[in-house]
Amino acid sequence: MKRILLAANMYPNKQFPSYGVFVQNTERILTNGGFSVDRVVLEKKTSKPAKAIGYATYYANLLRKGLYGHYDAIYVHYASHNALPLLMLKRMKPTVRIVTNVHGSDVVPEVASQEKYQPYVKQLLEQSSLIITPSHYYESLVKEKYGVDTPIAVFPSGGVNQAVFHPKEKAAARKELQLDPSYRYIGYVGRLDVGKGWDHYLRAIKLYTDENPSHRTKFIAVGSGKDEAAFKQLAAELGIEDVLIHYGLMQQSGLASVYNAIDAFVFPTTRKGESLGLVGLEAMACRTPIIASAIGGILDYVKPGENSWLFEPGSAEALKNQLIAFDQLSDAERDAVAEAAYQTALEYEESAIQPKLISIFNEN
Score class of each variant (00 low, 15 high):
Asp106His: 07
Val76Asp: 11
Ala294Cys: 02
Ser275Trp: 08
Leu310Ile: 14
Asp335Cys: 04
Gln114Ala: 13
Lys122Tyr: 05
Ser129Phe: 02
Ser257Glu: 12
Met10Trp: 12
Asn212Glu: 11
Gly248Tyr: 01
Pro304Gln: 07
Met284Lys: 03
Thr95Asp: 15
Glu241Gly: 14
Glu317Lys: 15
Ala52Gly: 07
Trp309Leu: 10
Leu30Val: 08
Gln123Ser: 15
Val21Arg: 09
His246Gln: 14
Ala173Gln: 03
Asp263Lys: 04
Ala173Ser: 12
Ala112Tyr: 09
Leu125Gly: 08
Val337Met: 03
Glu43Trp: 00
Ser140Asp: 15
Gly223Asp: 02
Tyr188Val: 09
Gln251Asp: 14
Ala264Asn: 04
Gly195Ile: 01
Asp300Thr: 04
Gln127Arg: 13
Ser157Ala: 15
Gly159Ser: 06
Ser105Ala: 14
Gly248His: 12
Phe165Asp: 03
Glu282Lys: 01
Cys286Glu: 00
Lys320Arg: 15
Ala336Thr: 12
Phe311Ala: 09
Ala204Leu: 09
Asp72Trp: 12
Ile220Gln: 00
Gly195Arg: 05
Lys65Ser: 13
Glu126Val: 12
Leu130Cys: 08
Ser36Met: 13
Tyr137Asn: 06
Ala56Thr: 09
Val258Ile: 15
Phe22Pro: 01
Gly254Val: 00
Gly190Cys: 07
Asn61Lys: 15
Arg39Asn: 12
Ser157Arg: 03
Asn9Ile: 03
Tyr19Thr: 08
Leu87Gly: 00
Gln123Ala: 15
Ser135His: 06
Arg216Thr: 14
Ile131Glu: 06
Glu176Leu: 13
Tyr59Gln: 07
Tyr188Thr: 01
Pro355Tyr: 11
Gly273Asn: 04
Gly187Arg: 00
Lys175Arg: 14
Ile245Cys: 04
Gly195Tyr: 03
Lys90Gly: 06
Gln178Ala: 14
Gln252Trp: 01
Val96Asp: 07
Leu249Cys: 10
Asp263Thr: 06
Thr57Met: 13
Ser105His: 13
Asn260Cys: 09
Asp327Val: 01
Leu141Arg: 10
